[in-house]
Design a protein around this nucleic acid. Structure first.
Lengths: 130, 130
DNA sequence: ATAACAAACGTTATATTATAACACTATGAT
DNA sequence: ATCATAGTGTTATAATATAACGTTTGTTAT
């Protein structure tokens, strides 16, 4: 059996940094921030990121190649993610709206494809930047 | 004034390749395919791609760093894109479903952000791969 | 027609993002 | 104890994307 929720040393270090951050972090910026803790190579970061994503602890913002902590306790499996992204200040906010998520999840493609998961990214200007 | 819909030489070359392709193409695979036509550098590809995206002729599949031709004549401005992506064969299909698009477009974030555009990517197994 | 401006081009160099491969270590299950 | 699995550290390299510069072409206004 896989260890239930225990994080490995590197996973914990990477998660801590991402959770403390105000916005999305890039892999190499994480790397630079943890070199004092003895992590030296991109591989170590990417491996931790992969696992954290699998566990639903973080999400990747695909349009930015950046990573944010998951704030909505109910998406452990990360199969329905939605974000709002400010095109000016780059702020990212996770949207957890049950209705929206349910609506999209129940969408069925004509061509017979069954969806396991979706990712939705909204773009605009946040309150501040407007 | 910008030229209405005329494509430049490089833009046309790149668009042709993408339109002929059965699936999403990566920038460097486009590059390798057009070297015989005198395009030698990534810059030339990326510049064409940027313009084609602006014009709504192609879309970027963010989760794959790949590009597909736009098949739905009504998204010239590319502000509401949705794709289904097979996790096995990598097939990508543009979804144009007015109802879905309308529903998502009309979604308003609590935090006061006004959305200009969204991109939705569904993942699963296509008919063949199931 | 031509000057002025904007868009596109070609090129070299470099930055950024991500993975391959290999040997080693720690942990958990039987 | 031993076997399997997950995690680690490291070097090297692949893949994706942009910066910067000077030139050429196309469009617009005069």
């Amino acid at each position: 059996m896989a260890r239930a929720q225990t994080l490995s040393r590197n996973q914990q270090i990477v998660l801590d940094i991402i959770e403390k951050a105000k916005g999305p972090l890039k892999a190499y910026s994480i790397l630079f921030n943890v070199q004092k803790k003895g992590i030296n190579a991109p591989q170590q970061i990417y491996r931790a990121l992969d696992k954290l994503i699998e566990m639903g602890k973080i999400h990747k913002i695909e349009s930015k190649n950046a990573f944010v902590a998951c704030r909505s306790s109910d998406c452990e499996i990360s199969k329905a993610t939605a974000f709002s992204i400010c095109e000016s200040c780059e702020m990212v906010d996770e949207i957890s709206d049950a209705k929206l998520s349910k609506y999209i999840s129940s969408f069925n493609h004509k061509k017979g494809m069954k969806f396991k998961r979706f990712n939705l990214e909204f773009f605009g200007l946040c309150k501040k930047c407007k």
